[in-house]
């Protein structure tokens, strides 16, 4: 029996859109990969880049940032900050060669249960193919 790699993916979901969308996917019994560990934040703008960096260094194989579509933020402008922070993190990871594709940003609205199921499944497949994070077994950090 092969020990198949089961990724651990941290998802930061905003309460009003993404989390509700995820909940919709759940109640509609849509397929959601078990690798996604959801952390609910009130707004995607609450996602401190340090959360993402901490998750990656602790060994998360993937990190998903999710929020309301731009223009639809429950708090009007929070997700505009999220977008800039994602761009910043992506740039840092790319420049340092830290496998920037282990981090992603998705806009998932409260009615997009199907989208939530799709993007989590796709990301899980991608991460599974990539393999474990090189930080997962690294002690000397």
């Amino acid at each position: 029996m092969s020990a198949e790699f089961q990724p651990q993916i941290i998802g930061f979901l905003c309460n009003w859109c993404s989390y509700t969308g995820a909940d919709l996917a759940g109640t509609a019994r849509m397929k959601i990969p078990p690798s996604i560990r959801v952390i609910r934040v009130m707004c995607s703008g609450r996602i401190d880049p340090l959360f993402v960096l901490r998750a990656l260094i602790m060994g998360a194989d993937g990190v998903m940032m999710m929020g309301c579509h731009p223009g639809d933020c429950h708090y009007q402008k929070g997700n505009y900050n999220t977008r800039r922070r994602y761009i910043m993190l992506n740039s840092i990871m790319e420049t340092l060669g830290m496998e920037a594709d282990r981090l992603g940003l998705w806009w998932v609205s409260a009615s997009e249960g199907v989208k939530y199921s799709r993007v989590t499944t796709e990301f899980d497949e991608k991460i599974t193919k990539k393999g474990p994070s090189p930080f997962a077994s690294e002690i000397f950090l």
């Binding site: 340092l96 060669g97 496998e99 090189p134 930080f135 690294e138 000397f140 950090l141």
Partner: peptide, 8 residues
Amino acid sequence: RKGQAEMI
């Protein structure tokens, strides 16, 4: 100096 191993 790029890459996880090099960074460490």
